[in-house]
Design a protein around this nucleic acid. Structure first.
Lengths: 335, 335
DNA sequence: CTGAAAGCGCTAACAG
DNA sequence: CTGTTAGCGCTTTCAG
């Protein structure tokens, strides 16, 4: 049954007309007679003709594909970003091609090359933890492929960016803990140099300093489940116990909560917790974890809109824009 | 700076040779002199030449793209499947184009048409909950695009399939509960007609019947968080309380656990729980939820392998294969 | 060792 | 109203 795909030529020869007539008939060109149009469209339907996007792309140098590079798809935050992106771009006739860097710089570079080869019309990217150098992104731009960075950005790269206000999210969370009576708050901080983690740490520090609560032992680097468990254990071995924990992500917060509960301490009365991400799991801890919602879906929408906008303008000498999205603290702590 | 993409022609004209020479030089064709090769390859590097995949695809009618249709990317199971797929296909030079049906039949149909237009080399699909009709899949096959279904399959469609042994996973989970002493087990079952849910229900029923524990009230339809909460509340209002719950997914199990704990009952001593999916969240409940691991990654790998195999054989009259993957019960119940 | 030409599927001048 | 032609970028005969 190896029927290869139906082309405009097949329709043309079966109808005894030229390919261009078929092409025109299919797009309702006014020049074509009603009879011909009808015949063509009917036969196209019967044969199940679908235009070959590849041929179209080659002609128009437009693929209607947006390239997306994210660190890990298995991250709920990123999959919700994807949904926001798809919602926006699909309305404009674009499809998304997703690539994962798996937090590796080298993979990210390969991804950009593949994107380039596939001649995608634009690229959305959230960079890997390893990424310091950004010549691969510049390479896209040099090839006149617009780039928008989101969430994990490269500060120095002059392109459009959409980020979450990590600084303020962290600041407000810390203040919330303070308002709830915490005086000795510890921040479980990110280990890497990614902007996101740095901003959260900065937000925490500023809030603590403002309330004169900052001290040198209140930052502990631990951003994975295992690390956070270890860290929390050694924190609980300190002479002075904390009364609040602000974690750089929910995973670390949840890990720390488990350690705290195992020691028989009560949450939030003995130690209160705030996480960051609003992951699915944060609803299932007991008590439910108070956490900063990053609004991945909205972030995706905004990034996509910015990219589409940039793609539609021919101007390569634009002034890059950075959009900052607000966060909101969910499930505030109740004593 | 609007430099459009570098082509083989650019290199050719700059070097005063013909495009065909450049083409050959770039792929190390033995006919080309060392000098020319070196010159071409160097210039290609400098200009940042990347072959235009679109043009290649048009020529070879091979896109090196695998189309993937899944219900929802925000589902951890599916994103782990994606990773399994990518791991396998990327080794073979393929990229994946992901489409979501969002559990809508109509979207799934549109997705297949887009895939067809993009002339993907093969399609992997897990169908939506609504999907009953499968002419859209047949349409792909008619166009000689091999299809492999995974997890959520259509029984009647004669294509390769990879599924998890939902029946056995459910059967064994139920027996595990029985071994642990449960005599009145209730199954929180799927509401829809998807094969996956049906198999789990069948597995549960068979195990219960074998041990003469089956009775008419032991199946309750509730497969979402909200529904499961409601269902569990009304179950706890029964004259005879259950001593075990087997849920069709972790979400329902977790919801039910929360209701049970709120009532002051102990888990697992009063009521034991087993879920299905091995979601991230299942590790974070207290106690951690015993659940059936579906091995999404492995499933993805197998499906991808099957598809690649089918793609490489020209034979359109193959006998479809169905691979069944085992499951394993994680975190068995400890009293 | 290298070049010219044809063709993948489609469309848009241009020419009837 | 319809057909012919050229060309998008690339490879691959065929012909030097």
């Amino acid at each position: 049954m190896r029927s290869s795909q139906v082309t405009i030529k097949d329709i043309a020869s079966q109808l005894g007309v030229s390919p261009s007539t078929v092409s025109r008939a299919l797009k309702n060109h006014p020049d074509i007679s009603k009879r011909t149009k009808k015949a063509v469209q009917e036969l196209a339907n019967i044969l199940g003709y679908k235009p070959n996007e590849i041929a179209l792309s080659l002609r128009t140098s437009k693929t209607n594909i947006i390239g997306l590079i994210i660190p890990e798809i298995e991250h709920h935050f990123f999959s919700s970003v994807i949904n926001g992106i798809e919602a926006v771009v699909s309305l404009n006739g674009y499809n998304v091609m997703i690539f994962q860097s798996n937090e590796k710089y080298t993979r990210e570079v390969i991804n950009t090359q593949t994107l380039l080869s596939h001649r995608v019309d634009g690229v959305l990217c959230s960079v890997s933890k390893e990424t310091q150098n950004y010549s691969h992104m510049e390479n896209l731009i040099k090839n006149s492929i617009p780039v928008v960075l989101f969430d994990r950005i490269i500060d120095d790269l002059p392109v459009d960016k959409v980020i979450v206000d990590d600084y303020r999210g962290a600041y407000e969370s810390t203040e919330h803990l303070i308002q709830k009576g915490c005086r000795n708050i510890i921040h479980l901080a990110a280990n890497d140099k990614v902007s996101v983690g740095m901003q959260r740490q900065r937000g925490f520090m500023e809030a603590m300093k403002k309330h004169k609560l900052f001290h040198k032992d209140c930052i502990v680097y631990a951003d994975t489940f295992q690390d956070a468990k270890k860290a929390m254990n050694s924190i609980l071995a300190r002479k002075v116990l904390p009364d609040g924990i602000f974690a750089v992500n929910d995973l670390a917060a949840i890990a720390a909560m488990q350690v705290v509960k195992k020691k028989g301490l009560k949450i939030p009365s003995d130690i209160a917790f705030v996480g960051f991400t609003n992951s699915i799991s944060s609803q299932f801890t007991e008590p439910a974890l108070s956490t900063v919602d990053q609004q991945g879906y909205k972030l995706g929408e905004q990034a996509a809109q910015l990219l589409l906008q940039r793609m539609s303008s021919k101007d390569m000498h634009y002034t890059p824009v950075t959009k900052i999205l607000g966060t909101s603290l969910t499930r505030k702590i109740h004593h």
